[in-house]
């Protein structure tokens, strides 16, 4: 198990190194000069040169890559070209919204999907199953921003339970902050929960058909006991895979929902940075997202091994 852990950890570091190289290269070949963009078209040549030197743009690509990566390791993400503030501060500010939002949405989605999937699988072909399958079909089909607007209309404008948008900030206390994240989290969670419930159902149905479930029944376990004790854990592997993918998506893919609810999250930051050609911010945020994805995958791998003893000996 320790060896498995160490090997996955090495794979994680290697992935980060390769990813950082690819991100840097991609942004290198994107046309456009940040210095020119910042100073406008009428800038003087010597002013431009001075700004380039200040931003470190006059160094060779390798030197700039090294400066970027070595800075990141110690938490120095550089200075934003547009706002002239440390990128690390900007990102940290946005993370305070995006990370809780992703975790909130994922928790909701799991909390909805597990019972729904298990319920549907244990009543295959009956009313409950048909209902769950129908509702989740709808959940997958409806775009989350449309659902978000619907919720704003009902819960914010009509019922006035929530604010229509904006983030209260953590300074105001956990309660108000969570409250302002609730509608966005639900909007994000519903399609994810629909997918996850369907995966849970089909994985569970498959493992309920396995021979060991029949063996368990022959021992005297009831249908429900066989499901909870034997089928469920065997069905977790595909479910964990989907949870890992969903978390990665929620971190980066919340941009539309952030816009609908006017939340200062990472998605909006990276969108603004791209429009302003603030390459250092784009690089840093993308790298951060890659880091999050890789770490989540690492955790999913560890979870696989915890669930399935057959994987512990392998790499």
């Amino acid at each position: 198990m320790l060896q498995f852990f160490l090997k996955r950890l090495m794979a994680l570091v290697l992935t980060l190194v390769v990813a950082s190289g690819v991100i840097f290269l991609c942004l290198e070949i994107v046309p456009g000069d940040p210095a020119l963009y910042m100073l406008g078209l009428n800038a003087q040549e010597d002013t431009l040169a001075a700004l380039r030197a200040e931003l470190g743009l006059d160094m060779g690509p390798l030197a700039r890559y090294w400066a970027w990566v070595s800075g990141m390791v110690v938490g120095d993400f550089g200075i934003s070209y547009t706002y002239r503030t440390p990128v690390a501060e900007m990102v940290a500010e946005r993370l305070k919204v995006s990370l809780p939002l992703a975790v909130y949405a994922l928790t909701l989605s799991t909390a909805i999907a597990f019972p729904a999937g298990i319920w549907a699988a244990s009543r295959r072909g009956r009313g409950a199953d048909i209902a769950v399958m129908g509702v989740t079909q709808l959940g997958v089909a409806i775009p989350n921003f449309w659902f978000a607007m619907l919720m704003v209309l009902v819960f914010a404008i009509q019922l006035r339970w929530f604010n229509a948008g904006g983030f209260a900030g953590w300074e105001a206390g956990v309660g108000p902050a969570l409250k302002s994240l609730t509608l966005p989290a639900i909007a994000l969670a519903l399609p994810q929960a629909s997918i996850l419930a369907r995966v849970m159902r089909s994985a569970l149905l498959e493992s309920l058909n396995e021979d060991y479930v029949r063996t368990a029944r022959a021992k005297g376990l009831s249908r429900g006991q066989a499901l909870w004790r034997h089928a469920l854990r065997n069905a977790l592997i595909p479910v964990l895979t989907i949870i890992g993918l969903q978390f990665a998506f929620l971190m980066a893919g919340a941009i539309i929902i952030e816009n609908v609810f006017y939340l200062p999250g990472l998605g909006r930051l990276v969108f603004q940075a791209i429009s302003a050609r603030d390459l250092i911010v784009v690089e840093s945020v993308v790298m951060l997202l890659v880091f999050a994805v890789v770490v989540v995958n690492f955790l999913v791998d560890i979870a696989y091994a915890l669930v399935d003893p057959r994987l512990r000996g392998q790499v």
């Binding site: 396995e210 021979d211 060991y212 029949r214 063996t215 368990a216 029944r217 022959a218 021992k219 005297g220 376990l221 009831s222 034997h230 854990r233 065997n234 669930v307 399935d308 003893p309 057959r310």
Partner: peptide, 25 residues
């Protein structure tokens, strides 16, 4: 419920496929 009481205690089964008859986890 009564059958669950009987299975494993009064009547037991052994199956053909030993490779898949046990829970791998």
């Amino acid at each position: 419920a009564q059958m669950c009481q009987l299975r494993g205690r009064v009547v037991s089964m052994v199956f053909q496929e030993p490779m898949t008859a046990l829970n791998p986890l």
